[in-house]
Design a binder for these strands. Structure first.
Length: 158
DNA sequence: GCCAACGTTGGC
DNA sequence: GCCAACGTTGGC
């Protein structure tokens, strides 16, 4: 099993939106970056888990754990002229963009902010913390995954 | 709103 | 294939 981090802007689609979806399940569409696309298409498998991360908001933070419930398949919004994510250069016969389906496993008992993550030496090397990191789909090393999970119950006291 | 970092585009 | 210009991301 692999671990991931999925960025989203809560003003666009966040944990609260996911919680209201049937089965708390959602296609993770609209990714338009080749590096992220490759991960969605080739590397993410059913049963993998991912942190849901809120960006571009008041307190950027990891807020939930989701499971990958469907592996990579073509992103239909790329073919839909009505979609914000429409890409006229994407050919249905050779799809350019891919998505997976995710399902909420559970919200974290508390959000773990970017600021707090940056303070943890054991998270050195986490892609999210890299200077200038912008990738919206990121791999998370197993040791980093467990370190973040441990933070959930550690609280802010230190 | 600022701006650094990064990806993409397109002329050559 | 180089690289400048431009657009986007995203923390602050």
């Amino acid at each position: 099993m692999n671990y991931w981090l999925l960025k989203t802007e809560p003003s666009c689609f966040g944990l609260a939106d996911l919680q209201q979806r049937p089965d708390q399940r959602e296609p993770w569409d609209g990714v338009r970056n080749y590096q992220a696309r490759n991960l969605l298409r080739d590397a993410m498998h059913v049963g993998d888990q991912a942190f849901l991360y809120h960006s571009s908001c008041k307190v950027p933070a990891v807020v939930a754990i989701v499971a990958i419930v469907r592996a990579g398949y073509p992103d239909p919004t790329a073919f839909d002229p009505q979609s914000r994510h429409f890409d006229p250069a994407s050919d249905p016969a050779a799809p350019r963009w891919y998505q997976v389906d995710i399902q909420l496993l559970r919200p974290l008992r508390r959000p773990i902010s970017l600021t707090e993550l940056r303070q943890r030496p054991e998270l050195d090397g986490l892609e999210l913390l890299r200077r200038g990191s912008r990738l919206s789909v990121q791999p998370v090393a197993e040791r980093h995954w467990h370190a973040i999970m441990a933070l959930e119950d550690a609280g802010n006291a230190r």
